[in-house]
């Protein structure tokens, strides 16, 4: 990402905020006041900051994984499903298989592995049969969602909750602790982002991925091993998604509910695109989006904007992000005028 591209991203965000601001005004609210209060609730209030960073952690880990495949031009829409399946796999290590002692380590490793395998299947289909990965990963999200429902409504349901569909809370030994008052996932996401950055921009493998993403023919002529590129990067991406899903389960929810998959896997697609598939930038965009996800309720509270508003913001933003190449040109043109 060069500076121009970065500025066009900022312009996209500002324009989206402006359009959303018009929307707030339409409902009789004061956009600046609403944004200010949202900012205060998301970043200045201790409870809010905790929640925002927790969300940012999950989003950043998911985005770090997605960056690897997006840079390679592979469209993994399945982070949501890999997140769920990873969490369920971790659940098996707690609810079903008794390993004799309580530790979060084994559930996490199993969750990552299973998330990775779940992602490798559509990758292998793409590699072997050229099956479109957008469709397969998207459909596998639904498979994962119904597997979640099967466990929450059926086999793992907590008998002590008056039949309400939740699984029993896991015992303390399995939980991930807070670190320096932050949810475990946020510090972890910084490490994951750095590792993903290193793989993508400092390793030979990352170089090959980027070549493959920019020029399929060049990758072919260079005799790159497409199996390790396609299946390998997808497996890494699934590894990260599985980590996020397992991490949310062990550090925050401590149980499964039908709403366990809150769509973070989809939001991560936006944060990854906003961050130009660079894991360091996606960390920043995740913190921004997490604040917006958490604080969007404030807009409803102070300005009476209906809940659909958040989708308008996301939609406008996505449209501008996708078309920012043209905004970039405009920024360049402005720069030329000034110099």
């Amino acid at each position: 990402m060069d500076i121009r591209s970065f500025l066009s991203t900022i312009v996209s965000v500002l324009v989206a905020l402006f359009v959303y601001g018009l929307f707030i005004m339409y409902f009789g609210g004061d956009p600046l006041d609403a944004y200010y209060r949202m900012f205060r609730n998301s970043y200045l209030d201790p409870n809010g900051l905790y929640e925002t960073l927790r969300l940012a952690g999950s989003l950043a880990i998911l985005s770090a994984g997605l960056s690897l495949v997006f840079k390679a031009g592979i469209w993994n829409i399945g982070a949501e499903g890999q997140y769920i399946i990873g969490g369920i796999a971790a659940g098996y290590m707690i609810y079903v298989f008794n390993i004799g002692f309580e530790t979060p380590v084994i559930p996490i490793l199993v969750g990552m592995l299973v998330g990775s395998l779940y992602s490798a299947v559509p990758a292998y289909l793409k590699y072997k049969l050229d099956v479109n990965e957008v469709l397969t990963t998207l459909m596998l999200n639904y498979v994962a969602l119904y597997i979640l429902y099967y466990h929450v409504y059926g086999v793992w349901r907590d008998p002590s909750t008056f039949g309400f569909p939740v699984t029993p809370e896991i015992s303390m030994g399995f939980r991930l602790p807070d670190i320096l008052g932050m949810n475990f996932l946020f510090p972890l996401s910084i490490i994951v982002s750095i590792v993903a950055y290193y793989i993508l921009f400092r390793s030979k493998y990352g170089f090959k991925l980027r070549v493959y993403g920019e020029n399929r023919e060049a990758a072919k002529y260079s005799r790159y091993n497409l199996f390790t590129l396609i299946v390998g990067s997808m497996a890494l991406s699934g590894l990260a998604s599985g980590l996020a899903g397992t991490g949310d389960f062990l550090s925050y929810y401590h149980r499964f509910k039908p709403g366990y998959a809150a769509g973070l896997g989809y939001t991560a697609i936006i944060t990854t695109l906003v961050g130009e598939s660079n894991p360091i930038y996606t960390l920043i965009s995740s913190i921004f989006f997490a604040g917006f996800l958490y604080g969007s309720n404030t807009i409803s509270i102070v300005a009476g904007v209906p809940f659909e508003g958040i989708y308008i913001f996301e939609g406008v933003l996505l449209a501008f992000i996708i078309s920012r190449r043209y905004i970039g040109r405009w920024v360049k043109w402005m720069g030329a005028e000034n110099s």
Binding site: R40, N41, D45, G48, E51, G295, N297, T298, V302
Partner: peptide, 9 residues
């Protein structure tokens, strides 16, 4: 999160 924000407001 919503309750927290309602209390803050």
């Amino acid at each position: 999160p919503v309750i927290t924000q309602l209390v803050n407001e």
